[in-house]
């Protein structure tokens, strides 16, 4: 799979030290050096440039507000790195609420010894991801912890965005007969991470699907408005978890069709080999929508025009039968319960 993302330019770092040390988190001169040459330089905007303790923002009306922390091993993976993941993750969470993401906070917890060139690369990718999503990083924080007390770098981002005027996103509006739409192929992120972590190599490199979804969500809300009742992005725990949570929350059943689940052939092969189920695997550039039945096909057609959602499908529908449960019609014509995962997916012995 070739990454559709264009490579972004990342100039040489403006730092005269090779690694980040505890001193860079002490709040003194070295901290300023790290911030001046790094964060403030790369993420420049009017709000951040005030260099206040916090940002002063012009917010009005209903606002979506979401926070997420990013811890990932490895920090750099095929198709992305922790920096863009931290931006896209929170941008997408705000978008899933029907919000138009505008502002982000950005906090680093850095493990002493992180090579400065790695930090710089992460920063460049944050800059690029924020630009692509159309959001400003307006406030932040940097801490450095002792070696062994962290894992290279942890990032927290919090996002704010005004609610789209036509949005009415609420699980309480979901009714039997509504259609479940999945925006793209699944499980690529999980497998990309695992392949690096476990040193597995495949004939074709599998890349993470990390990307922002706010523009496509805005386009959908512009076009379909309140006919869309629900958005969620199936990150940790995957599609199965989101559907189970929604079934539980609404006391309705979810019925999906296994044949409709889009998985790239190389991802499918890797899942087979590793004994993992794509339905439980994490995604970073996919969303689930629950919509009025009348617009489902039109919406899928609309999504197919966008490269980020070109594999969109109607995955199934909401039903009054089996409340709280997710059932899947298998390719063979059987049925099974798609349960809530207990913990992390663990590879099976045989």
């Amino acid at each position: 799979m070739k990454n559709k993302k264009t490579e972004f330019p990342c100039p040489e770092p403006d730092f005269d030290f090779p690694v980040i040390t505890l001193a860079h988190g002490s709040g003194g001169k070295l901290t300023n050096k790290l911030l001046d040459g790094g964060v403030f330089k790369r993420l420049k905007n009017d709000f951040l440039d005030l260099r206040h303790d916090g940002a002063i923002l012009p917010l009005e009306g209903q606002t979506a507000f979401s926070t997420d922390s990013f811890v990932i091993n490895p920090v750099f993976f095929p198709g992305g790195n922790i920096g863009e993941l931290a931006v896209n993750g929170t941008v997408n969470d705000v978008a899933m609420c029907g919000g138009i993401p505008q502002y982000l906070s950005l906090s680093f917890i850095i493990e002493e010894g992180l090579p400065v060139k790695d930090f710089w690369k992460i920063l460049c990718s944050i800059e690029n991801a924020a630009r692509e999503a159309g959001v400003y990083v307006v406030t932040g924080d940097t801490k450095v912890v002792d070696k062994g007390k962290g894992d290279k770098i942890f990032i927290n981002t919090t996002g704010l965005g005004k609610i789209h005027p036509k949005a009415d996103i609420s699980p309480a509006r979901i009714r039997p007969g509504d259609k479940i739409i999945l925006s793209n192929h699944i499980a690529a992120h999980s497998i990309a991470i695992l392949s690096i972590r476990e040193g597995l190599t495949f004939e074709t490199e599998i890349e993470s699907d990390t990307t922002n979804l706010n523009h496509v969500i805005k386009d959908l809300l512009d076009k379909f408005g309140a006919d869309i009742k629900f958005f969620r992005d199936p990150t940790r725990g995957g599609v199965a978890t989101v559907l189970n949570e929604t079934a539980g929350q609404t006391a309705l059943g979810m019925e999906i069709v296994s044949e409709n689940i889009p998985v790239l052939p190389q991802v499918k092969a890797a899942c087979e080999m590793l004994g993992l189920d794509p339905l439980y695997s994490a995604n970073e550039g996919v969303f689930i929508a629950i919509v009025k039945p009348g617009i489902a096909d039109e919406m899928v057609h609309f999504l197919h025009q966008n490269p980020k959602t070109e594999k969109a499908v109607v995955l199934g529908e909401v039903t009054a039968d089996h409340p709280g449960k997710v059932l899947m019609n298998t390719t063979l014509g059987g049925r099974r319960v798609v349960h809530m995962p207990v913990g992390e997916q663990l590879p099976r012995i045989c």
């Binding site: 014509g333 059987g334 099974r336 099976r348 045989c350």
Partner: peptide, 15 residues
């Protein structure tokens, strides 16, 4: 157990 897994995953018990 792998067969059990496949039977249940593919909904064969129900068919």
């Amino acid at each position: 157990g792998g067969q059990t897994h496949s039977l249940v995953k593919n909904g064969i018990l129900d068919m």
